[in-house]
Amino acid sequence: MARIIVVTSGKGGVGKTTSSAAIGLGLALKGNKVVIIDFDIGLRNLDLIMGCERRVVYDFVNVINGEATLNQALIKDKRVNSLSILPASQTRDKDALNKENVGKVLEELGEMYDFIVCDSPAGIEAGAMMALYYADEAIVTTNPEVSSVRDSDRILGMLASRSRRAELGLDPIKEHLLLTRYSPKRVEEGEMLSVEDVEDILSIPLLGVIPESQAVLKASNAGEPVILDTDSDAGKAYQDVVDRLLGEKVDFRFLLAEKKGIFSRMFGG
């Protein structure tokens, strides 16, 4: 059976879709069969970030309503054979989703894939609850910023109490902290919360730290998940995240501000 991983946060705009795309693609590049599901009905953007927005014929709601089969709706990624996307509906309502019909789709997907990455919408309402309900693991995406940390804490409470595992008294969802848009320089200057500050408040194991990077915007606009930009800090950091999810022990990079050597300072950069 597949590992169902929800990428959630509470707060909006912290990097859930960016991370879902990067991590999903990274897992597939390592030889795993991966499907990424966009749970943000009505505000879909996973297809944009993945670069397949022109190939969406059927979507998640079509499958739920029996208007299309899974195979018709799933979009195979052009870069990696073992990666597919299930896009969200843009015109329909999220009320089409309920626990039973979502559960059936996940069960069917579970037999076809090794990993199911659920890209959650922001908030704590039905859409987000549906995305986290069936999860085995959760990547709680957090910016080192007070409102994001507070909202992540809230969503952690929901993961512990409103998920299927919680309701049935099974082993709890495995929680991971993904700290995104981290700027070591600002942390050193005392402007930004540090990794330790966030870990102290949230008390969940750290999966990765993604540095603030201009590469992310470039990647979104190009429809190429940032993990493919192997020169960028963000791309490298996402690669480390994928390795850790697959069980490797990887040291955390990009935590300290770069000390510029005399030559780089003289010659710019």
Partner: peptide, 8 residues
């Protein structure tokens, strides 16, 4: 035992 999360 365990954290008491925001909103709980």
């Amino acid at each position: 035992r365990g954290q008491v999360r925001s909103g709980q």
